[in-house]
Design a protein around this nucleic acid. Structure first.
Lengths: 247, 247
DNA sequence: CGCTAGCTTGAGAGAGTTCAAGAATCGTGG
DNA sequence: CCACGATTCTTGAACTCTCTCAAGCTAGCG
């Protein structure tokens, strides 16, 4: 039975780790079956409606989150108050792991669509990690993966010299937001797209309209449900590397 | 006795881990004293002259490096061939750890000044890591630290909307390159400074000249030796947050 | 059916790029 | 020790991409 708790998030109850669809992927795959019983007794399974904040930057951190489903954006705010998105998390990713070493979060985590995540309290976690090498290895792997992502983000998506013009970078971003190998692309708000590339909402909108007019992109879905693009992948790939593409 | 080997790097001989000045800081601090004997038998202690490449992006990775002293820049080249610096490593940092999970390096590592580093072959390392939780924990910590650094880099130093104007960002960068709490700042080439901020060499130069003219910065040292700035930290700090500063 | 949040579009201004020389500086060899 | 060639850095001027500000527009939602 679902009931709402503070901040709009919803407690689904204690996690049922042994049934978790992500038991293979998620960090809990490194918890032995016998430990699992006690493990999930202190893991909260939470649901976050779109727009909810999982945690705030600078806030004292006493736990982190394993995403079961949905998408989360990690945001940093510049002194001028503009939001810059530094990373996108999907199911199977870990949010707020920095909590394990610093005592405050490095960014604000916001649910983009409906999100389900397990909250793992730090106190218990530290204890558990000490004598669980596979779990540590798994986390190191996740951390390295995140590192690789941000570096790519910085090198290929962020602006600056040598960086492609906005149109090219937007094409790259869209491709990286692609759903598997399909032609579906997760449709973020125009503002979020700007926040990821470091361009203004207006510029993002202009380019997007342009791409749509040329028939490379089609807006599908409406309301909160299933918003996405249907894209001409081949065309986007050409634009992404700077080739001129005929409509 | 030092003799040169391929690529200009120099083999100093097998590492003497028990004497290493960084035994407390570096990852080897998690190798037990008894293991140390066999450990350092397969660790190479290398010296790299300025400008040497430790490893290339995309190259097959079979080991990684622990920096003992000196500075290394991690570079990515955009399709247009422009170098973008994604991270700066100093003594105690680990370079190329991604090798442990991917089989190719994520960037090119270049020695900025004279660099000394221990090369740790992957095969041995994997074996060693398996049953050494403290070492894993240490590496996870390093990885998280690197992640935090890149994210800050992206949010505060990279260009784009909401980002500060180049002058402000350069001031921040210089402060982050400061040597401890002194007024000395490691002096990178004008091209490298551009590469870090994603601005052109010309823009970097203009701003730097300006800062020098205003007396906030003084170029010291010459040749390859000891190039550095002597800076008016207080002034730079004001510029970094966007305050107007009188000369 | 109207309201609000999100998106689109236009026009002008500015920060930073490019291209093109010129000035320093380095270290090398006579 | 000084002269020379090669980097590396500086400076100027024109140009361009993207930002800003300011309206309109659209579409979901109550």
């Amino acid at each position: 039975m679902t009931h709402p708790v503070a901040g709009g998030k919803t407690r689904e109850g204690k996690g049922n780790c042994s049934d978790c669809a992500l038991r293979q992927t998620l960090i809990c795959s490194d918890v032995s079956r016998s430990d699992l019983a006690t493990f999930h007794s202190w893991v909260d399974d939470l649901a976050f409606p779109p727009g909810t904040v999982l945690y705030h930057m600078e806030a004292p951190a006493d736990g982190f989150y394993c995403l079961r489903s949905g998408t989360v954006k990690l945001v940093r705010y510049s002194m001028s108050g503009v939001a810059r998105i530094v990373r996108i998390l999907k199911g199977g990713d870990v949010a707020g792991l920095e909590a394990a070493f610093a005592d405050t979060f490095a960014h604000t985590a916001v649910a983009v669509g409906e999100v389900r995540a397990c909250r793992i309290p730090l106190s218990r976690f530290r204890h558990m990690m000490r004598d669980n090498p596979p779990l540590q290895r798994r986390l190191l792997e996740k951390s390295q993966q995140a590192l690789a992502e941000v570096e790519t983000w910085l090198a290929e998506l962020a602006g600056g010299i040598g960086a492609a013009p906005a149109r090219q970078r937007l094409a790259r971003l869209l491709l990286s937001l692609r759903d598997g190998r399909s032609d579906r692309i997760h449709r973020f708000s125009i503002e979020d797209l700007g926040g990821m590339l470091g361009i203004s909402m207006e510029t993002a909108s202009r380019i997007l309209s342009d791409l749509t007019r040329q028939g490379f992109l089609e807006k599908c879905g409406s309301g909160r449900a299933e918003r996405h693009f249907r894209a001409d992948i081949a065309a986007l790939e050409k634009i992404a590397v700077g080739e001129a593409v005929p409509a």
